[in-house]
Computed example of a mutant assay.
Amino acid sequence: MFAIVEIAGLQYKVEQDQKLFVNRLKGDVGAKVSFDKILLTVNGSTTIGAPAVSGITVDAEIINHLKADKVIIFKKKRRKGYEKKNGHRQSLTQIQITGITGFDKKEAKKAEPKAKKEAAVSEEAPVAKKTTKKSDSETAE
């Protein structure tokens, strides 16, 4: 079971007990956060939101606030004496997905037997007999 969630303007594919880095979130270390903009869910059957799936939330816990590695931007124009050096460190939050809630247990159970029934029907289906058409020259004789 997984879901595609929009967190702080970016989309992530998340599963339960997964750890990931996202743009800085408000909240203290150890705080619980919940995301309700779910774009797609897969739990035996696929549910696509238009634009979001209603009734499903992704719960997470903030593990740590940190900064990413430094990115250096260096600009230079040759023979002009122009040089600019700049740097940037993105502020990140490490979160752990604690659960995806809001699924109906009935829907998950219904989706699995349906797939099994379709497979059984396709295996037991009788093979159609081939019929050949007579060409125009055979019918004219």
Rank of each mutant, 00 (worst) to 15 (best):
I95V: 14
I72H: 07
K76W: 01
K109S: 14
K67T: 09
V33H: 04
E118W: 12
V14M: 06
K84T: 07
T93A: 05
H65W: 07
G87T: 06
D136P: 11
E15S: 09
K117W: 10
I48Q: 08
K77R: 15
A60F: 03
I56A: 04
V14N: 03
E138A: 13
Q94F: 02
K117C: 03
A140T: 09
K67I: 00
G27D: 01
G9T: 03
A115Q: 15
V29L: 06
G44A: 05
D104A: 13
A50R: 12
V5G: 03
E123K: 15
V22C: 04
I48D: 05
K77N: 08
L25K: 05
N43E: 07
K37Q: 13
I7F: 03
L39F: 02
Q11K: 13
K110Q: 14
K105W: 05
E112Y: 14
K80N: 07
P113H: 12
Q90E: 12
K80P: 05
A111Y: 14
D59M: 06
I38C: 03
V22F: 06
K129M: 09
F2C: 05
A52M: 08
K32M: 11
E118N: 15
I38L: 04
E124K: 15
S34G: 04
E138D: 15
R79C: 06
A31F: 05
K75M: 00
V33P: 02
K32C: 04
G81N: 07
R89S: 09
M1R: 10
K70F: 02
I38M: 05
G102M: 08
T93W: 02
K76H: 15
I56T: 00
P113L: 14
V58S: 03
T57E: 13
T41D: 05
K134H: 12
I95P: 02
K70S: 09
G102I: 09
F103M: 13
Q18F: 02
G9D: 06
Q90V: 10
K109A: 15
D28G: 10
A125S: 14
R79L: 09
G99S: 11
R78H: 08
I4D: 01
E6I: 01
K37M: 05
G81L: 06
I100E: 04
A119I: 10
V29Q: 10
A8G: 00
P51G: 01
F21P: 00
T47V: 10
Q18C: 01
G9E: 03
F35Y: 00
V14E: 04
I95W: 08
I56F: 03
